[in-house]
Each structure stands twice: as structure tokens, then as C-alpha cells.
């Protein structure tokens, strides 16, 4: 595929942000600035701008915290750098954010169980689950932030969130986790 092909493909699908690579906190801050600027220029309602930015930051920080492909020591508690992808596109239904990252098989199973339920919940059920999780004393096992990241993403969505867990090419111990939300 030539650069022109890629640019045309992106334009055809109205993708206005695509990053495939290592994510870190500084990269997230800079990308958030770029996305913020773009959304301001589009004159979108503040409410929508906030939802897009919120979903982006949650998704990107999930990659930094949980992706199985880590440049830094996986036990590091800070300044982590991990691999993932994030795409943002304008669709007829709204702005669609899609993220993906490799995960180990036990994480894949945990995510599958959690998201199988979450993707079937109504908005009101999601909001209620969020309120409960906000008040929970401890986050769930394995959580680095309190356990309400996925609920936060789902709460902002205008349609049921979509996810996929796929085999990772060349890595039998890994799966690729992909999540999409439309705001």
C-alpha cells in the first residue's frame, strides 16, 4: 500500500487520528492536545468534545497499564511504555474510537467475561454499575485505577460498546483485545 493509498483509505473511512505504537503518559498528553485542537476546530458541542477526550484518555491509559507488550519492566509502577493502537473516525452515528492491544490469555478471559456482560447492558444499567463501582472500597484484583475504566468508557457511549478478542499472529500465548465505542 502506498502512502497515497493509506491517505485515501483513511479519508474514505473518515479516520482523523490513527496511532499504532508505544503509548506512554507524555505521548497521551501530546495526543490529547492534538485531538482537543481538532475537536475545537470542528466546533463540536463541548459535551461531545469531553466524551471523545475522556474515551481517548481512558483507552490510551488502559494500553499503558495493561498491554502485554511492554517496553518498560512490566512490574514498573510508573513511566510505563506499552504497545497498542488507537483510531478515531467520524461516522454517521458519531465519533468512533477503537483501541487494541495484546493481552495474555488469562487477561483475555477476564476481559471477555466482563465485556460480554457490559456490552449487553442498557445505558441505565451501566450508569448504575458505574455508581456502585465508584463507591466500592477496593478496585478489583489486577486493577491499577479503581476498576471503573471500562464502565467510564461504556457510560459515555451512545451505542452498546463493541469488543473482540482475536488470536495474535505469531504469538500463541497472546490474544489481541479490541474495543470500540461511539460517542
Amino acid at each position: 500500500m502506498t502512502q497515497k493509498d493509506f491517505a485515501e483509505l483513511a479519508a474514505e473511512h473518515d479516520v482523523f487520528f490513527y496511532y499504532c505504537g508505544y503509548f506512554s503518559q507524555p505521548i497521551i498528553e501530546a495526543s490529547a492536545d492534538a485531538i482537543r485542537l481538532r475537536l475545537e476546530c470542528e466546533n463540536l458541542a463541548y459535551k461531545i468534545q469531553r466524551r471523545v477526550l475522556g474515551a481517548f484518555i481512558e483507552m490510551a491509559q488502559n494500553i499503558v497499564h495493561y498491554s502485554a507488550e511492554s517496553l518498560t519492566d512490566p512490574n514498573a509502577k510508573t513511566d510505563e511504555v506499552r504497545f497498542g493502537t488507537l483510531a478515531i473516525a467520524q461516522t454517521d452515528l458519531g465519533i468512533r474510537l477503537t483501541c487494541s492491544n495484546p493481552v495474555d490469555t488469562s487477561t483475555a478471559q477476564r476481559l471477555d467475561s466482563k465485556l460480554a456482560v457490559l456490552s449487553q447492558m442498557s445505558l441505565e444499567e451501566i450508569r448504575q454499575a458505574y455508581r456502585t463501582a465508584l463507591r466500592a472500597e477496593e478496585g478489583e484484583a489486577g486493577s491499577k485505577g479503581g476498576g471503573i475504566g471500562l464502565l467510564t468508557i461504556a457510560r459515555e457511549s451512545s451505542a452498546p460498546i463493541e469488543y473482540q478478542i482475536m488470536d495474535a499472529p505469531n504469538s500463541p500465548d497472546l490474544k489481541i483485545f479490541q474495543l470500540s465505542v461511539t460517542v
Binding site: 475522556g54 484518555i57 491509559q61 465508584l134 485505577g145 479503581g146 471503573i148 475504566g149 464502565l151
Partner: peptide, 12 residues
């Protein structure tokens, strides 16, 4: 003006 999910929980 903006809080990520983890910050929201800590503020709560």
C-alpha cells in the same frame, strides 16, 4: 475540568 476514571474515584 477533567478527571480520568481513577482520579474520579480518588476525588470521590
Amino acid at each position: 475540568r477533567y478527571l480520568n476514571s481513577a482520579a474520579t474515584k480518588m476525588i470521590f
